[in-house]
């Protein structure tokens, strides 16, 4: 951390690319040199001890890590998979931003994380609620943080997500894809943990009076995908998300005008303006249930509509019963 370190001989070798142009411009020291010189001078002066006092011991190490991360981001030296999943960005940025919400704000109680296999594909099926898909984001955080193998949840999202600018970019980078059979199967066959919220907009946009009543589970396409990929289905019940934004009304005309499935009215939104966007600090429980095995069925089982509907019903019933069970146990909405 001294200015002497500026001249370590090893640092010249960090330009490995044969096409690298000389970054020292011929006319005097380049921007990099001047910047480095200034920072070095400051650190060897009074700023160094001050920084140690402020950020605690070992701040140099952390700062070096951040710089390495910054370097990879700035030079595009990172990988994304075919679905656009940017693992580094998800771990370093997205999950770090969501984590306080999961741990401090909703104080999520996670149960049954051991039901998610350590490796190989699995399909997590959960109930959907809360006007905004916070439940899906929180599930992603807890699966990563609580699972011993730090697995990433790859969610299947509504097509609206991939139409909206900004949102689609973030969704792809955090590993999510469109809810369609092809993508679901491709992810499951690659051995990913896939999350699906089969109620869709019917579930997330249901009025507060119908809270914790599971809606219809679509066409059961998720069951067919799991059967084809022969991966277990893990039912997941989420309690607490229903009360984050209690939806007491729906401005249908505006929703039609904007092309949205619903425009919610909650006790705080839109009355309090942006402040009304703040979710209520409810206490959440996320429970992963016993996995339902699908590898015992023959290969053509996915094309048997009766079996698919039966399995979808079984998953739905399991989630509904677990929800009732958790609701009975719950002391209060907020604690």
């Amino acid at each position: 951390m001294s200015a002497a370190a500026e001249n370590v001989p090893g640092e010249a070798k960090v330009i490995p690319i044969e096409s690298a142009p000389s970054w020292n411009s011929p006319d005097g020291p380049g921007l990099a040199d001047r910047l480095a010189g200034a920072v070095g001078g400051a650190l060897s002066g009074q700023l160094g001890p001050a920084a140690t006092r402020m950020f605690g011991k070992g701040w140099e190490g952390r700062a070096t890590e951040r710089l390495a991360f910054l370097r990879r981001r700035l030079t595009g030296d990172y990988e994304v998979d075919e679905f656009g999943f940017d693992r580094e960005l998800t771990e370093e940025v997205v999950l770090s931003l969501l984590r306080p919400l999961a741990e401090k704000y909703f104080r999520i109680d996670v149960q049954g994380i051991e039901h998610i296999p350590a490796e190989g594909g699995a399909l997590i099926v959960a109930n959907h609620s809360g006007t905004l898909p916070l439940d899906a984001l929180m599930t992603q955080v807890v699966v990563h943080d609580h699972h011993p193998h730090r697995r990433h949840l790859r969610m299947l999202a509504a097509d609206l997500v991939f139409v909206l600018p900004g949102v689609n970019e973030l969704a792809r980078k955090s590993g999510h894809t469109l809810a369609c059979n092809e993508d679901a199967q491709a992810l499951l066959e690659r051995g990913e943990v896939v999350g699906v919220w089969p109620e869709g907009f019917k579930g997330i946009g249901k009025p507060f009076s119908e809270r914790y009543k599971l809606q219809r589970f679509g066409r059961g396409g998720f069951v067919a995908s799991a059967l084809r990929a022969k991966v277990p289905i893990v039912p997941c019940s989420i309690v607490g998300a229903e009360e984050t934004y209690p939806m007491i009304g729906n401005v249908k005309t505006l929703a039609r005008l904007l092309g949205l499935p619903y425009v919610p009215v909650t006790p705080t939104f839109p009355w309090l303006g942006p402040l009304g966007m703040l979710p209520l600090p409810t206490k959440w429980t996320i429970r992963f249930g016993e996995p339902i095995a699908t590898d015992g069925y023959p290969a053509e089982a996915a094309d048997d509509p009766m079996l698919v509907f039966d399995l979808a019903d079984e998953v739905r019933e399991t989630i509904q019963h677990t929800l009732y069970h958790l609701l009975v146990q719950r002391r209060s909405v907020f604690f």
Binding site: M1, E6, L35, E60, G61, R71
Partner: peptide
Amino acid sequence: PERLAAVTDRLSALLGPDG
């Protein structure tokens, strides 16, 4: 990208052998 990398490398080199 080489130039950007050089800037960050130089900064992390400044943080010295502790890093």
